[in-house]
Simulated assay, not measured.
Amino acid sequence: MSDETKIHGVNPVQALLESGRPVSSLWVLKGRHGKRVEEMIEGFRARGVPIQFCERTAMDRMADGGAHQGVIARCAPREAMSWDDLLDVVEKAKQPLLVILDGVEDPHNLGAIMRSAEAFGALAVILPKDRTAPLNAGAIKASAGAAERLDLIRVTNLARAIEQLQQRNVWVIGLAGEAGAPLIGTLDCKGPLALVMGNEGSGLRRLTRERCDQLAAIPMGGGVGSLNVSVATGVALYEVLRQRAG
C-alpha cells in the first residue's frame, strides 16, 4: 500500500509487534540470530504476517541507507491523538507533563526526545506542522520504540497551542540559556507542566519565549556552553520526575 511506512531496528519493530498495529510484511537478515529476534519472528508469524529472509544488500536497499539491525517491518501509519483529544486528557489528568518543540529539525533529535519523554512519563510531544523534523525511519529508530507508545501531535499555531494549555492551568516553562534565567531545579515542577525546547541552533523563537510563563536554565559546570537539545530535554525531564517522586 502506498501509505504504508517502514520501521527499522530491533526495539522499534518489537514495539510495533506489541502495539498490535497492522503489519503487512517483515524482512529479516539471513543468519540474524538471537532469542529476541527469534521471538519477534514467532510473534509476527502467529499474527499471519509474511516473513522474508533477505541478504544484507537487499536489507540495506530497503532501509534506504539507514541502520536496520537486521529487521524491517512494513506497516500502516500510526494514528495520532488529535489536539482536541489531548486537551481533554490534559484537563482530566492530575499531573500532566508535556514536551513542546519549537523548531527542532533533526529527526534523530526528535526520536531521542520522544525516547526521553516516554521514559519520564510525558503524555505527548507537541511541535509545529511546518519546518520541523519528520517522524521518519531514522527518528523512529532513535526513539527506541517510544514512537509506538507516545503521541506526537503537530499543531498549526504553536503560540495558540501554548495559550490553550495555559487556559487549562498548565504551567509552561521554556528552557533557555541566557543569563538571569533561574535554574530549573529551583522551580516547582510538580503541577501540570509543559517544557518548551528550542531549535538546535537558534533556541526558542521570540514569540514562543513571550508565551512561556517562565524561562529556566540547566546548570552547567564545565567548559561546554550548551547541550544538545535531546540531552537538555532529558535533563529537564529528569528534574521534573525527581521533584514529583521526592
Score class of each variant (00 low, 15 high):
240 V>Q: 02
108 H>Y: 09
206 R>S: 13
35 K>N: 12
76 A>E: 12
218 I>A: 09
102 D>C: 01
137 A>M: 12
5 T>D: 05
162 I>M: 14
144 A>P: 08
37 V>E: 03
226 S>G: 10
59 M>T: 05
150 L>Y: 02
18 E>A: 15
123 L>H: 14
238 Y>L: 11
179 A>H: 13
186 T>Q: 13
13 V>I: 08
174 G>R: 09
17 L>A: 03
160 R>K: 15
144 A>R: 06
111 G>T: 06
22 P>L: 00
34 G>T: 07
60 D>I: 02
6 K>L: 15
22 P>C: 00
204 L>G: 03
143 S>R: 05
149 R>E: 14
159 A>V: 12
79 E>Q: 15
141 K>S: 13
182 P>W: 07
119 A>T: 15
99 V>W: 03
29 L>D: 04
91 E>G: 06
141 K>M: 13
125 V>S: 00
180 G>H: 08
72 I>N: 02
101 L>Y: 02
240 V>K: 03
89 V>I: 15
220 M>Y: 09
27 W>L: 13
191 G>F: 06
65 G>K: 00
243 Q>D: 08
199 N>A: 13
76 A>M: 10
150 L>K: 01
135 L>C: 11
173 I>K: 03
141 K>W: 10
97 L>H: 11
29 L>V: 09
197 M>G: 02
41 I>N: 03
164 Q>K: 15
204 L>E: 01
6 K>Y: 14
140 I>M: 15
222 G>N: 06
170 V>N: 12
19 S>C: 03
192 P>Y: 14
224 V>Q: 08
124 A>E: 06
10 V>W: 06
112 A>V: 04
242 R>W: 08
19 S>Q: 04
169 N>H: 15
144 A>Y: 08
161 A>E: 01
142 A>E: 06
6 K>T: 14
162 I>R: 00
101 L>Q: 00
167 Q>P: 08
116 S>W: 05
237 L>V: 14
136 N>M: 07
102 D>Q: 03
150 L>M: 10
177 G>D: 05
158 L>I: 11
55 E>T: 08
234 G>R: 00
206 R>N: 14
230 S>N: 06
238 Y>E: 06
160 R>D: 12
166 Q>W: 00
26 L>S: 03
7 I>T: 10
103 G>N: 06
211 R>I: 01
25 S>T: 14
23 V>G: 09
203 G>A: 02
178 E>C: 09
38 E>S: 12
123 L>W: 05
160 R>S: 13
193 L>D: 04
179 A>D: 14
38 E>F: 10
59 M>K: 05
128 P>T: 07
124 A>C: 08
35 K>Y: 09
97 L>R: 13
191 G>L: 08
92 K>L: 11
240 V>W: 02
81 M>Q: 15
60 D>W: 03
156 T>P: 00
60 D>Y: 05
2 S>Y: 09
